[in-house]
């Protein structure tokens, strides 16, 4: 069970959260103008990286807020979590041993 640092509430056990998939996929402002390929990509295509992953979580059984996280999918350690709307932090390499402090 992971420990996840909610940007609003602090560290909490994973059971309080819900994983919500890849982060930074904005809904097109005018979906009807999207080509089939563009719309298909928005709906379904995902990075699924082996390594640093920007992903969404929701503190479902806490503050209820959505937020983003950078997590290394090869270790499951978080580098950081950040609020929706904030840009993806620039992080290179892998998550530190022991994870986010």
């Amino acid at each position: 069970m992971l420990v996840i640092h909610c940007p609003y509430c602090g560290p909490r056990p994973e059971l309080e959260f819900r994983h919500c998939g890849q982060a930074h996929i904005a809904r097109p402002l005018d979906p009807s103008a999207q080509t089939a390929d563009e719309w298909g990509e928005y709906l379904y295509l995902r990075e699924n990286p082996k390594g640093m992953h920007a992903e969404r979580w929701r503190h479902m059984h806490g503050c209820g807020r959505f937020f983003n996280a950078l997590r290394d999918t090869t270790t499951d350690f978080f580098v950081t979590t950040y609020k929706c709307g904030e840009p993806r932090p620039a992080v290179s390499g892998t998550a530190p041993a022991g994870g986010q402090r």
Binding site: R18, C20, A26, R27, R56, R58, M60, R65, F66, C84
Partner: peptide, 10 residues
């Protein structure tokens, strides 16, 4: 959950 998702993030 879906409502919150759209409201908070979109």
């Amino acid at each position: 959950h879906m409502m919150e998702d759209y409201l908070q993030t979109e």
